[in-house]
Amino acid sequence: MSTARPEIVTPEQWRAAREALLVKEKAHTRARDAMAAERRRMPMIRVDKDYRFTAPGGADATLLDLFDGSRQLIVYRFFMDPDMDVYPERGCPGCSMYADQLGNLLHLRERDTRFVAVSRGEQEHLQRYREHMGWAFPWYTLRDDFDADHDVAGWHGTNVFLRDGDEVFRTYFIDARGDEALGSTWSFLDITPYGRQEAWEDSPEGWPQTPPYTWGGWHDKYDHTL
């Protein structure tokens, strides 16, 4: 075990160091907000291909079905595939750690946004593993080249889609270390085209917005399912 540790200082010195760092942390927060504002102004791509998935329970599903009525959709590519050494008993350890840190997804639903995971594994194995690990997110089976077309055939990644009626558009993609920052309600909303949908945000005219701290709260009071 390492014996290395931070320097020991007086309470006054610690507070001075904390306040100096806080200046940089606030600048980082402002820069993150500016990046999210720029992200909300990104163009999008129309999705014309008829992608197919197997839903929990075995039903056939389209990409439009994955929205389940929501306007925005976040799709995480979870590696639990038949060609993995640990399949069908387990999925990728990194993807599993990602799933462990997901917040309560009902808060996303309150913001007209749905999160789902997709893998190439069969439903019987995906759902057994999900229940064993104590996860609640919807998990679908990939049945075509959705992963290849959306940059997640060889690695994990997160795609974001927007629905306008029956039309679907790809708005954003992030992977590698970018996925490390995801998991909380706020982090997911910040990668969607409509963002947190709060009045303080720098968003294009016409974007849905409400006053801050007026929509979130007790998840058991929401009229939603995952």
Rank of each mutant, 00 (worst) to 15 (best):
residue 83 D to R: 13
residue 142 L to Y: 02
residue 91 G to D: 08
residue 132 H to G: 14
residue 80 M to K: 03
residue 58 G to E: 12
residue 120 R to E: 13
residue 145 D to E: 14
residue 50 D to P: 06
residue 116 V to G: 03
residue 111 R to C: 12
residue 63 L to N: 05
residue 85 D to M: 11
residue 75 V to D: 07
residue 69 G to N: 08
residue 57 G to P: 04
residue 114 R to K: 08
residue 117 A to W: 01
residue 52 R to I: 11
residue 81 D to S: 15
residue 49 K to L: 08
residue 61 A to V: 05
residue 99 A to M: 12
residue 116 V to K: 00
residue 82 P to Q: 11
residue 71 R to N: 15
residue 149 D to C: 11
residue 60 D to Y: 09
residue 139 W to T: 04
residue 74 I to N: 01
residue 80 M to D: 01
residue 126 L to H: 02
residue 118 V to E: 00
residue 83 D to W: 15
residue 59 A to S: 14
residue 54 T to W: 03
residue 61 A to E: 04
residue 112 D to W: 01
residue 88 P to V: 08
residue 60 D to S: 13
residue 66 L to R: 02
residue 58 G to R: 12
residue 88 P to W: 04
residue 133 M to Q: 14
residue 131 E to K: 12
residue 122 E to S: 14
residue 149 D to F: 04
residue 137 F to D: 01
residue 93 P to R: 00
residue 57 G to M: 04
residue 112 D to T: 03
residue 116 V to I: 09
residue 114 R to N: 01
residue 101 Q to P: 09
residue 124 E to D: 15
residue 54 T to H: 07
residue 103 G to E: 05
residue 66 L to K: 05
residue 51 Y to T: 00
residue 104 N to E: 11
residue 78 F to E: 00
residue 93 P to T: 07
residue 53 F to S: 12
residue 77 R to M: 11
residue 80 M to W: 02
residue 122 E to R: 10
residue 150 H to P: 00
residue 125 H to T: 02
residue 73 L to D: 02
residue 62 T to E: 06
residue 122 E to L: 08
residue 83 D to E: 15
residue 69 G to T: 06
residue 40 R to G: 09
residue 124 E to H: 15
residue 97 M to H: 13
residue 129 Y to K: 06
residue 111 R to N: 15
residue 131 E to N: 13
residue 115 F to T: 08
residue 81 D to V: 07
residue 153 A to C: 14
residue 81 D to C: 11
residue 116 V to W: 01
residue 99 A to H: 04
residue 79 F to G: 00
residue 120 R to W: 07
residue 45 I to P: 12
residue 92 C to A: 14
residue 39 R to M: 06
residue 102 L to E: 01
residue 45 I to W: 14
residue 113 T to H: 02
residue 121 G to H: 01
residue 116 V to M: 00
residue 77 R to S: 09
residue 58 G to M: 11
residue 103 G to C: 05
residue 85 D to I: 10
residue 76 Y to Q: 00
residue 150 H to W: 03
residue 104 N to W: 03
residue 42 M to K: 12
residue 122 E to C: 08
residue 130 R to W: 03
residue 108 L to G: 02
residue 67 F to R: 01
residue 63 L to Y: 02
residue 69 G to R: 03
residue 64 L to F: 09
residue 66 L to C: 11
residue 133 M to G: 09
residue 59 A to D: 12
residue 114 R to A: 03
residue 88 P to F: 09
residue 103 G to D: 04
residue 148 A to I: 14
residue 75 V to M: 07
residue 126 L to C: 07
residue 73 L to T: 01
residue 45 I to H: 15
residue 70 S to T: 11
residue 63 L to I: 05
residue 98 Y to H: 10
residue 72 Q to I: 06
